[in-house]
Design a protein around this nucleic acid. Sequence first.
DNA 1: GCGCATTACTAATACGCATTAACACGAGGG
DNA 2: CCCTCGTGTTAATGCGTATTAGTAATGCGC
Lengths: 380, 380
Amino acid sequence: MEQPRKRARPGRAPTPAGRTSRPRQAEVARLAGVSQATVSLVLSNRGDGQAASISQETRQRVLDAARSLGYVPDPAARRLAAARNNLLGVFSFTATFPTDVQHSYYPFLVGVEREAAALGYDLVLFTGSSSGGSGAAGPEALSRVRLADGCLFLGRHVPRADLKRLVADGFPVVHLGRREELEGLAWVGADYVSASREVVAHLAALGHRRIVLVREDDDAPASTDRQEGFLRGLSDAGLTGRPDAVLRCSDPAGEVTAERVRALVADGVSAFVAEETDTNAAWRALSGAVREAGLDCPGQVSLGLLGSPPPDLAGAPVPMGFDIPRPRLGAAAVRLLAALVAGEETREPLVACEFRAGETAGPVRAAGRAGSARQAHSEK
Amino acid sequence: MEQPRKRARPGRAPTPAGRTSRPRQAEVARLAGVSQATVSLVLSNRGDGQAASISQETRQRVLDAARSLGYVPDPAARRLAAARNNLLGVFSFTATFPTDVQHSYYPFLVGVEREAAALGYDLVLFTGSSSGGSGAAGPEALSRVRLADGCLFLGRHVPRADLKRLVADGFPVVHLGRREELEGLAWVGADYVSASREVVAHLAALGHRRIVLVREDDDAPASTDRQEGFLRGLSDAGLTGRPDAVLRCSDPAGEVTAERVRALVADGVSAFVAEETDTNAAWRALSGAVREAGLDCPGQVSLGLLGSPPPDLAGAPVPMGFDIPRPRLGAAAVRLLAALVAGEETREPLVACEFRAGETAGPVRAAGRAGSARQAHSEK
DNA sequence: GCGCATTACTAATACGCATTAACACGAGGG
DNA sequence: CCCTCGTGTTAATGCGTATTAGTAATGCGC
């Protein structure tokens, strides 16, 4: 009668609150007349496969009970119990849905969503800029992602330190966009090298012998890659890259003038390609200059854009070039992440771009010969 | 010494796996020479506030220990213990990120994300089409949303039955877009009535005495609301609504012709407003007819559009009217949902639209007095 | 000095699920 | 008839944290 240690149990109040709590495995178990453990066994084996010694009948009873109660496993508990919860995180340090749609990750998310759905994952969007919740945007912010099985990071503003920490802890992380500086960080990116190379190859196939790349004065990997692809494309086609094949300018609008273009054309250049950047300054300058110079675009001069056309194209001919398959990039990132979560060691970092024929490239005209370029055209 | 029941402890293997375990509160506690509970207390009170009786010294020791070990709380455990997971679901029966950006929920999501972040919630995106997770796309799909603390539904294709079920179970649900048919379902919508009223008020203030609403033959609440607001606006301004103030047509393009518009203007009508629909047929017909009739828009006739301008405006003057504040709608939905989750009973269904001055409305010209069409043109 | 309030902290849960040793029950095998 | 297997199910645990009852220690008033 002395109840040795019955100290009016501490811990939590019997019922958290008035909240009509969602059903737990325990409730499902009660309804099905089995134990909670059985429910867990049945539900985790759901896929069918090697039923771990649960009779068909029991299994069915449990499934029925679960459905009728609308049971859904608690992701947190699931995760805590060292399992997985079929949740993939998506984290961007800037807003994922910025007001300025132009800079959004939307196209990526299209692919991310589709692929995640296909692979059976749901997406948790961690709101990175959140100053809300508990505390500042300190380590807390990034540590929340651990609720998911793995996390996809968008943008280049992800704090290095936190990322490193996650990677070091063995948390599955994939960065969307090239990011080689961080050892062990998985990432996916577009293959600008091959794509640029392909563009050059197409121009070469159209008969162009002198092609000039207009790029900005910038050492981002995206720029470097394009240049590398461009040069490789040239050498593939047996066009030794003359030093003036690359026009690197800090002020495209000022440097790529109609005169200059005309001069280059007179010198034998028959095609130009511009790198793609945020502003697409190179492309704008180039296409503007060509128009101003009174050159017929697909006719006398071919143009290429190493990337997607600017959104404000509006009537202008679609440039030949390549499209960055953003949705596919997103999908690839998800696939990679899923593989990491599953413990596999897949590597699939680069996604191919799609060649876009466009309307700004055509065969070299025989009539378009120029002064010192006579030899170049002699084969016509 | 006989160890009554020491059954070689079941449960999990001593160490889950190779996972490099991050420090736990227990380790911090050991280092600081206190109990785990103390660590929890110190760390959860982080913000400062009313220190729950922990001495400055201990507090500091714990904080130091935590920092030196690089402790980060495990969100899964945190949420498990707190009996909520700070997750809000977002469910759309069509893909959340459709390829066709035009029809996307993007503008809403902008607000949803921002508000969720501000309130300290993360977002779980459920895809209706998703066959993923653990089950088919059947009733299972909708039941998955229960994994969040509450859920936001987008679009009008949400199956009634399932929604009803969720509501009946007391699961916090908010529908984005008016939805009154379902008892007990919380929703947020735009206040078309007030906005339409305001548009009319503006026109009245500019001196317009005869205003005509062009609407399609459709009984959607959105249409009805606009008409109601229009009529109220008229009566506010003391302009008794003549029966012919509303032009309801099943084929706007065919019915709203240049002739008809000219006739109406001749009859004294100085302003037209069109309702907004998917196709904006009414607006297109109206503005086309006015142009065709050779009427100067802000000068001889004022036009209004009860909604957002069509995306393909391209150079045409921005119509006067109102904008549906989609981001704010999203934000309001999140606020409402958060309130429901917290057990509050807030009601904030209608969000005000923003009046847009545009360029298609101007004061009535003194010369534009009615009578016959002759006068209307005489000032030319 | 004895109650009583206050302060500083700890012990003991509980959260919901996965996991696994252990048990119950028959079916053969010797 | 006992013992070994196999099969189906359960009891008991742990994951890492939050919470609360409880304890020890101190201070205060009379």
